[in-house]
Write a protein that binds this DNA or RNA. Structure first.
Lengths: 141, 141
DNA sequence: TATTGTTATACTCTATAACTATA
DNA sequence: TATAGTTATAGAGTATAACAATA
């Protein structure tokens, strides 16, 4: 059996490679990965504030501002003032945003879904699926 | 049981978060993650060329050049001419490079090793360890 | 011509610091 | 003062294009 140190070392490497591969799959013109993640949250939660999005994505509010700038420039979201507390800004998905979300989802997941189904047997797929909640627990705050 | 699409979606997210966390763990002054990876290859393989390192790390030779620039500036590697084929450059670890490698290895692995041992039970650790070769197969060329 | 490597440039992602507006 | 958000700036990581030197 591998040592924890060895497991961690290999995990770190494979995470780096997977992450890079995912990045490369950003089709030209379609939303970036960070943008895609925001679109997905908006789809799930409806209208939310930048601070909430920053918390959900585990990034600083300043970083989220920049992601939102890009999305606004592409007209995939709108920023509107909060009706009662004017410090707050409400972020909503536009209809182009929804279209882009669905298109992006399809494009981005393709290679990984293909790799999973073509390179892993069904029992292996189950092992991988079982490991995902464990990885999620590790990255929890 | 989760669908492949759902598994992939969660895997993509957790890879993104793990990767970011790993990045944040770069101690100031110590080698960056890409640099650390190169130092590890040099430790394992001895003297190699930039092209070989680029292949091992699955990056473009131009990207590797930049990583090597940083390592050379910090005096962690040396570039020497190949004795017979003068197109080639040989990269070697300096003694500071070896020291930095060992220090970095210790620092960088810490949080993930701690998270694995503190947040996962021994059987869960085994599930995660079993999933790693599967992830490696997915990122293979 | 092909191979090895580099320089120039640009983009994504994220961070910290400093600021404005509102509560 | 505290909170919500933004702008300015920087650094890591990677890419493509164009180039030089050598085979």
């Amino acid at each position: 059996m591998p040592t924890v140190t060895e497991t961690v070392s290999r995990l770190r490497r494979v995470v780096r490679l997977l992450n890079r591969r995912a990045q490369a799959d950003t089709g030209a013109g379609s939303p970036t990965r960070s943008q895609q993640a925001v679109l997905a949250w908006l789809d799930e939660r409806g209208t939310v504030t930048p601070t909430t999005l920053a918390t959900l994505e585990q990034v600083r509010p300043q970083s989220m501002s920049q992601t939102l700038d890009g999305l606004e420039r592409s007209a995939l979201i709108t920023r509107t003032a909060h009706p009662s507390d004017r410090r707050q800004v409400l972020i909503s998905l536009t209809s182009s945003g929804r279209t882009a979300l669905e298109r992006g989802r399809r494009l981005r997941q393709e290679w990984l879904e293909n790799a999973m189904t073509n390179r892993l047997s069904p029992p292996e797929q189950r092992v991988l699926a079982a490991a995902i909640p464990l990885l999620e627990r590790i990255v929890e705050d």
